[in-house]
């Protein structure tokens, strides 16, 4: 399948990545060849195959819903690109 510029525009919107026209062109070209490569999989009949999402035989372990750390707010905020006291700051969302 060929991936055109409009499709790139749609996917990049979903992925929240802004792209200029030149970059969209080169990505359309790259993705077209990559999907051509990927579509080799269509040679295989997989109707009766169960999908494999994890190689682990057992289900994921879950922990008790109990706080075992906490009190690390200031540490976490230290890496924030923009903060105000104990809050992350983002561009205005509502008028």
């Amino acid at each position: 399948m060929s991936i055109d510029k409009d499709k790139i525009k749609h996917i990049s919107k979903l992925a929240r990545i802004s792209l200029d026209s030149k970059k969209s062109d080169s990505l359309a070209k790259d993705l077209t060849s990559i999907f051509k490569f990927i579509e080799q999989l269509n040679e295989l009949n997989t109707d009766k195959v169960e999908p494999l999402s994890s190689i682990l035989n057992s289900p994921l372990r879950s922990r008790e819903d109990k706080i075992d750390d906490g009190k690390i707010r200031d540490k976490i905020l230290e890496n924030s690109p923009k903060k105000n006291e104990e809050f992350f700051v983002v561009p205005k969302v509502i008028e």
């Binding site: 295989l44 997989t46 999908p51 999402s53």
Partner: peptide
């Protein structure tokens, strides 16, 4: 489809 082929590879 890829998850199914992954099963075959395993």
């Amino acid at each position: 489809k890829a998850q199914k082929v992954r099963q075959l590879i395993k």
